[in-house]
């Protein structure tokens, strides 16, 4: 049992380093630190200018939470396409080991890295915009970050499983990540959206986490915030299960169509 857990963790670390391309710290710094900081800065300056409010804590928190898409989508979501590019996808599929566990194992480091990313963005936002989070329930807030990352990872897993048959998942991943910026309430209240898009927003990860963060910032109704976080985790679990189902389906399809190594 201990050996199996050890193997699970080892595989997670190795695949994270190898497939996510973080062998070079330069790539990590530009893509995961510098890029997100400027993105945060851009949206916070825009919302501050537009809403004319000095108190932009809600937008700092919302935009920071959104950054978990970097790992969820471009880490977990690209596992299959990266395996294909490395020529190892057929080995993964043919290995006598659960594909789902392989997938989950490879997601572990991304979940941790995603939490780090959100925390770093928050820290930057707090420093740059002098945000005061002293009155916030930190335990619930930390749990909210975890819920957001789990939920986004679920969607990443679902899109990633399509990578077994779809040659280019980049379009889907980029669309999904921009949709998170636009539809989850990170930059404006989702009530402003047309009704159809509001319904879509509630099917996306992060919407509830951002709402919960808003409630925590207001210092009101911790039980409602907790409820939203649990719903967020439930949504993430639903996406993970959908990802599992799709993975089984796509594995069968890719074997049938012999599309595993096709570029």
């Amino acid at each position: 049992m201990t050996e199996a857990i050890g193997r699970f963790i080892r595989q997670s670390i190795f695949s994270y380093k190898a497939l996510f391309g973080w062998i070079s710290p330069k790539a990590y710094i530009t893509s995961k630190i510098v890029g997100p900081i400027f993105q945060l800065l851009f949206f916070c300056l825009l919302t501050r200018y537009s809403y004319g409010s000095e108190n932009i804590a809600r937008w700092v928190v919302g935009n920071s939470l959104v950054f978990c898409y970097l790992n969820a989508f471009f880490g977990i979501g690209t596992i299959m396409t990266n395996e294909r590019a490395a020529g190892t996808l057929k080995l993964v599929v043919a290995a006598p080991y659960s594909k789902f566990l392989t997938f989950l194992g490879r997601s572990l480091m991304h979940v941790l890295d995603g939490i780090f990313n959100v925390a770093l963005s928050l820290f930057t936002g707090i420093i740059l915009f002098r945000i005061d989070l002293s009155g916030i329930n930190m335990t619930l807030f930390a749990f909210n970050i975890l819920a957001a990352v789990i939920s986004a990872s679920g969607l990443g897993l679902t899109i990633g499983s399509l990578g077994l048959v779809v040659k280019d998942t980049n379009l889907m991943l980029n669309t999904a990540s921009t949709a998170l910026l636009a539809l989850t309430g990170a930059n404006f209240p989702i009530e402003k959206l047309p009704l159809l898009l509001q319904k879509l927003a509630y099917c996306l990860p992060l919407t509830r986490s951002i709402q919960a963060a808003g409630l925590l910032l207001q210092g009101a109704n911790a039980s409602r915030a907790l409820e939203l976080m649990l719903l967020e985790i439930a949504l993430g679990t639903a996406y993970t299960l959908l990802g599992y189902f799709l993975l089984q389906l796509m594995e069968g399809l890719s074997r049938k169509k012999a599309a595993l190594d096709l570029f």
């Binding site: 919302t47 537009s50 669309t175 921009t178 910026l181 636009a182 930059n187 404006f188 402003k192 959206l193």
Partner: peptide, 13 residues
């Protein structure tokens, strides 16, 4: 998406 985000941010400003 960017037009949607910026339009919604500016809409009631």
């Amino acid at each position: 998406f960017f037009a949607l985000i910026t339009y919604m941010i500016y809409k009631d400003s």
